[in-house]
Amino acid sequence: MSWKKRLPKSRDSGPTGSRLQIVLLPDLGQPLDLLLAQLSPVEREQAEQRGPTERRRRQFVLGRLAARRAAGRALVRQRRCSSVEVLTGQDGGPVVQVDGARDVVSVSLAHSGRLALACAWPNMAGEGYRAGVDLERVRPTDVARSRYAFSGRERALLARVPEGLLLAGLAAWTAKEAAWKALGPAQGFDPAGVRLRALNLAGGLAVVEASSGRPRLGVRLGFVAGPDGIYLLSLARFPLHPLPCRFSALLSGDVEHE
């Protein structure tokens, strides 16, 4: 069975309705020039400044394309627009520019291996809604034992996860990274600083709190098949969405196949 056939297929828009749009984009080995041609001149210039390797530039471009699509979907019911660009903001994070305006829609994006993941949501005045996504390709790692990534309390928590240290470490790290993105730049430069408080892999849920202890976020976890293996995805939302849901429902109908 191809990886495409194993992606979620449901057309149910999920409990978030049209609020949060998620796009997952695989790297299928297209020439980099063809990918770059889909970007705006400013996006292309930023992509070409991305380090000395093609791998980095490919990931950057795929992330921008995924984010742009997610932003376009989030905008559909909000307004008509002629141009959507995803630029790099002053803090290094992605900023969506819609017809020159920057406060219309927000995005979070991630890439690992040969997949890019983005989510977008329209900004509502005074609402303070934020989301963060992350993904990691499942591969051998001893991150669960890392003193840099996890505190002693967190490592003890991971040692009790029935699915084993490898998956526990990967899931915990993606949960921390998604929550760190949702919480914003006040959390410092590194996701290691936010705190993992609970991890239920079978239930697809982690609980993470800010480095100061507040706020506390629920993070949805899920697996998806990519072109080069299985990936672990995470989605954190703030304020915490009150309805319990599976990650597969959030992805439904929003997975891009190219």
Binding site: G51, T53, V143, S146
Partner: peptide, 13 residues
């Protein structure tokens, strides 16, 4: 490390 396409997990490692 991001210049070489590292993801956050690779940086931690």
């Amino acid at each position: 490390m991001r210049d070489f396409g590292a993801d956050s997990l690779e940086i931690v490692e």
